[in-house]
Amino acid sequence: MTAFAALHLADTPLLLPNVWDHASAAALAAQGFAAVGTTSLGVAAAVGLPDGTAATRDATLNLALALGSGPFLLSVDAEGGFSDDPDEVAGVARELAAVGAAGINLEDGRPDGTLAPVELHAAKIAAVKSAVPGLFVNARTDTHWLGNGGDSDGSDAMSGAMSDVGGDMDDTSRRLDAYQQAGADGVFVPGLSEPSRITALLKTLDVPLNILYSPTGPTVPALADLGVRRISLGSLLYRRALGAAVETAALIRAGRSVEGPAPTYDEVQAFVRPASQRPDTLG
């Protein structure tokens, strides 16, 4: 069992904050988070590309290269693997593992709002596990998420609102069963937050369940009590950071005081690696 897989079986669930650059990852590691994930929305927005459209393959790989040797375990949100060819998805997984990633998140939601065929997504999972057996595959289904108007990153709306209404539990169970059988190490259902539905789904699973945290949904302790083993923050941190930056500028423009914590210049500089430890950028 890998160290990352073991975090899913610890006494408390793995709370996985999602990052978008080196500084955000280093700052969270400094706060004691043993593992971080990337946020596809944050990665895409940072380089001016749309999320969930397979447009950020290079940006995602470059970020993984920058983070893979950091003092934390890294899981990478690879959308749908940036391809519908399982062999190409396996190639992405090889590249991620080669730069130090411990896990990959693969989703079955598509940019047009539909779900990929179960057999196709299962084939991607099987190809990745065959190519890189030690890479933790978190298989995500968007059976609930697409019906709730969420973004591809699996993050709740800015208000934090999230609802299970309309989520097809039968389709969810069918898909997750196929993904388990294909070799997934964990499964992820963003948009699922109703405790009774989570409990019912857990009874059908043989692998850890990942739930997306919502400010209006169950708390981390409540999710732990239900049996959830991994709790992701999705793009929430990125969006809050962006919101705080805009709010700060607006307050200063209005002649008002700015409150709240902010790292000092020297504290941020401390996150920078020496030049000898910086990776080359992927092509």
Rank of each mutant, 00 (worst) to 15 (best):
T53V: 11
W20K: 00
G283E: 12
L212S: 06
A245C: 15
P263R: 15
F72G: 03
D266V: 11
N105V: 14
T141P: 01
V36K: 01
A139L: 14
G150S: 05
G243V: 03
I125H: 00
A26Y: 07
G103Y: 08
L135F: 03
A34K: 15
A55T: 15
R140A: 05
D51H: 01
L96C: 12
Y265W: 13
G134F: 02
W145R: 04
D112K: 14
H22E: 13
D185R: 08
L67A: 11
L49A: 05
L242N: 09
A64S: 10
S75P: 01
M1A: 15
A101T: 06
R239N: 07
A54H: 00
D142S: 10
D11A: 13
F33G: 04
A270T: 08
A139F: 06
L115G: 07
A250S: 07
T204Q: 15
G91I: 06
A30I: 04
A5G: 07
T248K: 08
A54K: 00
D151L: 10
E95C: 12
N210R: 04
P133H: 11
A23L: 15
S159I: 02
G70Y: 09
F136R: 01
V220R: 12
L201R: 13
E259N: 09
A93W: 09
A245G: 04
D156V: 12
V118R: 10
V187R: 11
D77Y: 14
D185E: 09
